[in-house]
């Protein structure tokens, strides 16, 4: 893994262009440093020594591209990730969502769905799951496929349970899943009102009106232009007084939409659309 792969910025441009023209995914406004690292990571994983070979694979093998896309995008997720965030959600946002007759939530960049599952559990515990629709979207179809199944490794449950408890959960966490030999199957009733769908934040548009949008640890991979565009998209997709939740290391600071949001919980990065 110590092989050093040298990639020139122009070559990255070429790769971005190939992907855009051939597959329609636009990475040109992704954070360049991160994108470059991910491309290197992919090349190492696939034992590809030089960029020309990579381009060749990308151009000629759609199946390789699927793998590449899956490996390229960073899918770090866990249930009740950042428990304090979920605690804030549970205490501050969910009770307010209860005042909407039909609740619509958008999880943008849901990866393999763990955070969606967590949200569903919160809603269930608040007695709101029945009148909630969660739209979980991701760029990557493979992620969505995985998320739809609601399957997670058994080994992760310990950590998830701890997270759940720290997020203020008081129910029996194990009642939400069925344990098998080395994986667990999430209670399918939790996903009844979840719609998993592909949505590309770079190219796609507003598709509904939401009371809460969760987009955690996605914006960090974008450059500022794209961040502004996506935040505008979120703004347009929120009802007035709707909530926006970002990752713990993300902020609206210096963003175009900043004046149009109030910070509800600074430490949990929960914002609210002003009007």
């Amino acid at each position: 893994m110590n092989e050093w792969i040298e990639i020139q910025p122009e070559q990255i441009d070429d790769i971005v262009q190939i992907i855009r023209e051939q597959y329609g995914y636009d990475f040109s406004d992704y954070s360049r440093a991160s994108f470059t690292r991910r491309v290197k990571h992919c090349m190492q994983a696939a034992h590809i020594k030089n960029v020309t070979d990579l381009q060749h694979h990308l151009v000629n093998e759609p199946s390789f591209f699927n793998w590449f896309l899956q490996t390229l995008t960073v899918n770090v997720t866990e249930m009740f990730r950042d428990p304090l965030f979920y605690k804030a959600l549970r205490e501050t946002v969910i009770p307010r969502l209860a005042s909407y007759p039909i609740i619509k939530i958008w999880h943008a960049g849901c990866a393999t769905g763990e955070e969606v599952f967590s949200m569903a559990i919160l809603l269930k515990e608040a007695g709101l799951l029945e009148r909630t629709r969660i739209y979980a979207t991701d760029l990557n179809p493979a992620n969505l496929e995985k998320a739809r199944k609601g399957i997670m490794p058994l080994s992760a449950m310990k950590e998830y349970t701890a997270n759940y408890i720290r997020s203020g959960g008081v129910e029996e966490f194990s009642s939400y899943y069925e344990a098998h030999r080395d994986y667990v199957q999430l209670d399918s009733s939790l996903l009844k009102n979840v719609l998993f769908s592909q949505h590309n934040l770079v190219t796609d548009q507003v598709f509904n009106e939401f009371q809460l949008i969760c987009c955690r640890n996605v914006l960090i991979y974008f450059n500022k232009i794209l961040q502004n565009r996506v935040l505008q998209l979120f703004y347009d997709s929120l009802v007035p007084l709707g909530y926006l939740a970002l990752g713990m290391k993300e902020s609206l600071l210096f963003m175009d939409v900043r004046p149009r949001f109030d910070s509800i919980k600074d430490e949990a990065k929960i914002f609210r659309r002003k009007n």
Binding site: S31, A33, S34, N75, P153, N217, I220, E250, F254
Partner: peptide, 26 residues
Amino acid sequence: RQTEALQASEEEMRVQEEELRQVNAE
């Protein structure tokens, strides 16, 4: 698996760090 996850986490951390650095610079 953990290495994969770690690598992804590391990437995320780096990106977060970069983001923070940028915000800090600003």
